[in-house]
Amino acid sequence: MSATAELSTLGVSIWLDDLSRERITSGNLAQLIDTHNVVGVTTNPTIFQQAISKGDAYAERIAALGDAGHSTEDAVFALMVDDVRDACDIFVPQFEASAGVDGRVSIEVSPVLAHDTQATIEQATVLAESVGRANVLIKIPATKAGLPAITETLARGISVNVTLIFSLERYREVVDAYLAGVEQAAERGVDISTLHSVASFFVSRVDTAIDQQLDANGSPEAKDLRSKAGIANARLAYEAFEELFHSDRAKKLLADGANVQRPLWASTGVKDPALPPTLYVTELAAPHTVNTMPEKTLEATGELHSIEGDRVSAFYAEAHSVMDALADLGISYAEVTQALEDEGVSKFIDSWHELLETVEKALGATR
């Protein structure tokens, strides 16, 4: 059995953290499904900006949008919706085989709306309708303004990928927003068994930020903690997941047909070249999770001889010890995670503007 098949058997869903027109039309996406047990795809503004800026795979469609008089932003959304819709169609077998758990493709609301609740709700609804596929997930950032948007979007019967989660406190708020959304959906007569959600907990970015502070400290204790914070943080999120979905509130919803909101490990490509390329895959393997892998991480995982099994649920005490040791060194978990959230939104906004500029130039050339 391959390592990716072992992960799947353990209960880890492998989603590719990339999408492009070329990946769809070349058959590469279908190939990864067959060879690496890929059962979903995530996207974001950075991924689309990189895809559209390379080669001419989008040239014909951009020309058609230009001829039709579309604005730059409308053209961007049309291009994204095209790719996501076509990817959704490719994943129909996985969607049906998993009863809607997998076979999912995510599309993100504009990051410019990260602090605007109502605008996020309306755009999430439009995106879901535009893609028009049952296996789409709408990505909404876990900002303070994003939390009520998550609840209302779910209440409207739309499945959600909650993104940019860094702190355990915010993760608990995300779960609360999810449960509230499912409760409100049930009140509105929505079949809650069709509602699915993942909570995307970012991993490597936590290590990058905290390792910088550990390096500045320079003590033996600090050196010993390098590249341990991201995994510890994610393991404690899984501990919270097990606790929250065993609450009386969650049990009632699950008994009525609701689904758990699975933890998703995002940003699982290592940033430090000294680390094993599969570190955030093997060390975060656990049932009822999703791991979104860049292609390099996916290929490295495919080359592993085996997976050690669940590397999360037996490591809670160790994870707490890591976080306590970081606090003892004066590293503020709250400050780091809030800075990462702010930076994450900012980076996606920058990518969004770059994406608009790329498409604007292409539209200009066609006109």
Rank of each mutant, 00 (worst) to 15 (best):
A334G: 03
Y333N: 11
P287K: 13
Q123F: 12
R170Y: 05
F315T: 11
A149D: 07
P273D: 03
V112Y: 04
T117G: 06
F245V: 02
R104N: 01
G257I: 03
L329T: 05
I192K: 04
S53E: 13
L279K: 14
L279A: 15
V101S: 13
G11P: 02
S130G: 02
A250I: 02
N259D: 08
V198P: 09
G103F: 06
E6Y: 04
S159G: 03
F166V: 10
V81R: 06
D82S: 09
Y238N: 10
S346M: 11
F48K: 10
R156Q: 15
D350R: 14
L326N: 05
F201S: 08
S193V: 03
H246V: 08
I192L: 01
A339Q: 11
L113P: 06
E360H: 14
A339K: 14
N44H: 11
K223F: 10
A232D: 01
V290H: 07
Q338D: 15
R188W: 04
E122I: 07
D310A: 04
Y316V: 13
A255N: 10
A334H: 07
V131H: 00
T25N: 15
A145D: 13
A325R: 15
E308Q: 14
V336D: 08
A258D: 02
T9H: 06
F166W: 09
T292A: 10
F315P: 05
V109Q: 05
R104Q: 10
I14S: 05
N233A: 11
R205Y: 07
S159Y: 00
V260A: 06
Q261L: 06
A327T: 13
E354N: 13
V12P: 03
A124H: 10
G40R: 06
S219D: 02
I138Y: 01
L214P: 03
E283C: 10
T366K: 15
D272A: 08
L304Y: 00
S2W: 02
V92E: 12
L244D: 12
A134H: 03
R104C: 06
I14C: 07
T120E: 01
R367W: 08
G132R: 07
V322N: 00
I210L: 01
A240V: 13
